[in-house]
Design a binder for these strands. Structure first.
Length: 169
DNA sequence: CTCCGCCTACCAA
DNA sequence: TTGGTAGGCGGAG
């Protein structure tokens, strides 16, 4: 169950990401939008202690991944109201280490649905917590970069920082 | 039910 | 190699 989300910003070398928390954990992470931050984002005061702790973890993890390193700890992720299929895909994504990649087909096989390749792409596109749930580490079967809802340039950049080589689209 | 998508394997040039 | 494409599946409306 997810009602009102608490919005907090994370300032990084790439701009201000917006993190949204439910009572269960981090529910969404948005890439910095062109322009200024969401006016709805609040400062980390008057925020429940639990959420502040989660946010500290989010901020540290985000900066680590943006630098091409492994996130030591993640806050709890709120995937309630998501489908089982999506959750299974995202769980599989979390097992891919920085610098490693898998193809959509490999993810499909990993979750026991070898033919749901395209649907895996759909779940990646619906990932509400990019970067921390590393959908950018999924490439097309031919070694090409594949797609990315956050914009291919971001995917290229994230992969480059992890030292990953890929073929042109 | 229909339509669409961060895919793939396959076939024709 | 490159380009076109049918198959397959989950999600949204």
């Amino acid at each position: 169950m997810k009602t009102r989300l608490v919005e907090l910003l994370v300032s990084t070398c790439d701009g201000q990401f917006i993190a949204r928390y439910s009572e269960n954990g981090l529910a969404e992470l948005n890439f910095p939008s062109v322009g200024r931050a969401s006016p709805r984002a609040v400062k980390p005061i008057g925020v429940p202690t639990t959420i502040r702790r989660w946010h500290n973890a989010t901020a540290a993890a985000l900066k680590a991944v943006l630098a091409g390193r492994t996130a030591k700890t993640l806050p709890p992720l709120d995937w309630s109201d998501k489908t089982e299929f999506q959750k299974s895909v995202w769980r599989a994504l979390r097992k891919i280490r920085p610098g490693q990649t898998k193809s959509y087909g490999e993810i499909a096989r990993a979750i026991g649905k070898p033919k749901a390749v395209r649907a895996v792409g759909g779940a990646c596109g619906a990932n509400p917590i990019p970067v921390l749930v590393p959908c950018h580490r999924v490439l097309a079967a031919n070694g090409k970069i594949g797609g990315f809802s956050g914009g291919l340039n971001r995917k290229r950049e994230l992969l480059a920082r992890e030292g990953v080589k890929f073929l042109a689209p």
